[in-house]
Simulated assay, not measured.
Amino acid sequence: MSTYSIKDLEQLSGIKAHTLRIWEQRYNLLNPKRTDTNIRFYDDNDLKLILNVALLNDNGYKISKIASMNQEEMRAEVMKLTDRTLTHDDQIHALTICMIEMDEERFDKVLSTNILKLGFEQTMMNIVYPFMSKIGVLWQTGAINPAHEHFISNLVRQKLIVAIDGQVVSSEGKKFLLFLPEGELHEISLLFASYLIKSKGNKVIYLGQNTPNEDLLAVYKIHQPDFMLTVITTSPSSENAQDYLNLLAKRFSETQILVTGYQVIGQDLVMPSNVKLMNYIRDIKELLDEVNLVSEEK
């Protein structure tokens, strides 16, 4: 079972720590435990509770009414809300609850309902991708158990692979080589980029996780892609990212290299002339629109 500080609860629920303390004192909503050194902490049950409270409160339920509900009543009201509401923040809350409870069936229902209402791309852009980015950061800081992140990542990965397989590639499209650096295993952003690229009719050579440098070079020589794209979430570290980008730029000097990820966004890095930083997944979408526009004009 994971443990959380009140700041972790604030990050995951969006409710200020000060407000949580007031609710804890006034309504006995939470039951913090204490370490041997008398430091307060919260467990998975506390997190699930406060996520449900946040969702209900955001949708107009008074905190006094929420505090009077038992666990089953609260869960039933949350289920009703997530079945009918299209608010992105509400759906992200619902996915977070599914993650903490390891509830695969409920997660699939929330995701499938949104895909039916919004479409796959909009669901990914506005709900799943922000959710995964948030969870990724929390996993890195130790705020959530790695098992939670792996559980959700595998479910999202399955959805993405099915969606990618359904895309049709155009013979007129550009060629993209997608890979993750050696030691990098966080694949969701790369898979979503693959979906976006193929949805625009472009061809994808997908190497995936933990690609050795020599293998990358061998595939590059065979396919001569127009673009290379990578996501650096954990490896290489931010301290080594500049050297890695310089190496990529030198080895693949004839190709436009697109990079994004936690270790490069917001860092004080100098981008070589053939390397372009993508701050968000929307940047990749905008670039694809530009590439398609140029192709159509030709």
Rank of each mutant, 00 (worst) to 15 (best):
K33H: 07
D43N: 14
L277Q: 10
A67G: 05
T19A: 07
F192S: 00
A218K: 14
V53N: 02
V162C: 11
K117V: 00
L258E: 03
F107W: 00
G173R: 02
E172S: 12
F131N: 05
I22L: 09
T3I: 15
K159T: 00
D44Q: 11
S64M: 02
T113C: 12
V137R: 02
M1E: 15
N292G: 05
D58V: 10
G60N: 10
T87Y: 14
Y42I: 09
P272R: 06
Q224K: 09
I50H: 06
T230S: 09
D46M: 13
S2Y: 07
N28G: 14
E297G: 00
Y27W: 07
L155P: 00
G119S: 02
K7P: 08
K62D: 15
K62P: 04
G119C: 03
Y42N: 11
A76E: 15
Q25G: 13
L49K: 00
T35D: 14
Q167I: 12
P130Y: 07
K80D: 08
H18Y: 10
F41A: 07
T260A: 10
D58G: 04
D90C: 15
Q91W: 08
M102D: 14
T113E: 15
S295T: 06
G173H: 04
D89I: 07
E73C: 14
I281P: 02
L185F: 08
G166P: 03
L269S: 03
E254Q: 09
I257R: 10
K65E: 15
D83E: 13
W139Q: 06
S133K: 03
P181A: 11
K16Y: 04
S295I: 05
N202K: 03
E184Q: 13
E239I: 07
E296A: 14
F227S: 03
D46Y: 04
A241Q: 10
N145T: 15
R282K: 13
E24Y: 04
S5M: 11
T3E: 13
E121T: 12
S199I: 12
M69C: 07
K200S: 11
K203S: 11
F252N: 05
N279W: 05
I232L: 05
Q122N: 14
Y129A: 13
N126T: 01
E72P: 02
N213F: 15
D268N: 15
P272L: 11
Y244Q: 10
E72Y: 09
E296R: 01
T35M: 13
V137Y: 07
N114W: 02
F131V: 05
F41Q: 00
I164H: 03
G266K: 03
K109G: 02
L191C: 03
V168C: 09
L116F: 05
E149K: 03
L86D: 05
I115W: 02
Q267G: 09
Y244R: 05
K198C: 09
L217Y: 12
K62T: 13
P212K: 00
T19G: 00
A67S: 15
I100G: 02
L47W: 02
R40H: 06
E239H: 00
